[in-house]
Design a protein around this nucleic acid. Structure first.
Lengths: 163, 163
DNA sequence: CGTTTAGTTCGGTAATTAACGAACCTAGAG
DNA sequence: CTCTAGGTTCGTTAATTACCGAACTAAACG
């Protein structure tokens, strides 16, 4: 059955996001559902309450969490009070990784500064070299992310026009 | 004062690892301390109890957690019962990212399979294309990681010989 | 104006987590 | 065999988290 496969996928997403983003189980399931299921036209609050078998308050709280994290967004339709929730475009979700990478680069700069000042033994020289190599790696990772993000933004913009 | 700078660095590491790896605060501080401070010859259990101002049991539990996660390792010295703890080499720590990336690649393959079967509307075709592009990105990320890991392993091996 | 729809906020509770001290274990020294 | 150094394990506790239902709000409808 196809329905089962979908459910399994959502569940896999659930576990994945839960530990990757460190968010509550319900938030993780909602995000999974929106990615797999809500890609067409978005899901409403009520549809989510139904699908998730959770209370209105829990859905509300977790939707707001995901909104604040920019993992999801919503749009409205004229003459319709409902909010339609969708998973954020990939470019947005990758942006979060970018922040992480930038954070790590900041940290590594601090370490390098520290190690440059306090290099007394040969072991510490090695550490310094390692830090340089690590910084190089992170800079490449940053570059890769930036490239991919602009690529996605391009795709997303084109799709916007096609509508 | 240098001591203060070190403390601040460790604290920054603390916050960073806490959310990056989703580990308890104390584990995160221990890891930070071992990276900054324990790079020369490793720190013993007792030194950590002292430095962290935490109980033996807490140190034990968190050290074992970090060992299981392969964030740290220890070595022993002949005729000395103590364990000397050190942060794992960067190649090892990067391996953890690799696992994450591989997990994500697995997930994305599942999604692609699902989407290929259930492409009914044009919006879903776009999703499929996005998934392909995302997979490409993750494959590049994997490649970057693999390259860096071998590079680090090389450096680490050379240092082993120089001793 | 009252009612309905769509969602938020608040207070409480059950479950989980992070840390603790005390008791325990185990290998080697004397 | 007993003692000690170097940890580990166990049971408890305090704090945090995830979720709930009930009460609330705000906008639109009639």
């Amino acid at each position: 059955m196809m329905q089962e496969e979908k459910q399994e996928l959502i569940e896999m997403f659930g576990v994945h996001f839960e530990q990757l983003y460190n968010i509550p189980p319900l938030a993780s399931r909602i995000l999974g559902t929106l990615i797999i299921d809500g890609c067409k036209s978005g899901l409403t609050f009520e549809e989510l309450v139904d699908k998730m078998q959770a209370s209105k308050s829990s859905i509300s709280t977790n939707l707001n969490l995901l909104l604040k994290m920019e993992k999801i967004y919503y749009f409205t339709v004229l003459g319709d009070r409902k909010k339609y929730f969708k998973a954020s475009p990939l470019s947005q979700r990758l942006n979060n990784y970018l922040t992480l990478v930038n954070n790590e680069l900041l940290l590594i700069d601090k370490i390098i500064k520290y190690r440059e000042k306090n290099t007394c033994c040969s072991q510490e020289k090695i550490n310094l070299l390692n830090s340089y190599a690590y910084k190089e790696h992170m800079e490449k990772a940053e570059q890769l992310l930036l490239t991919t993000i602009t690529k996605f933004k391009d795709i997303e913009e084109k799709n916007q026009l096609n509508k």
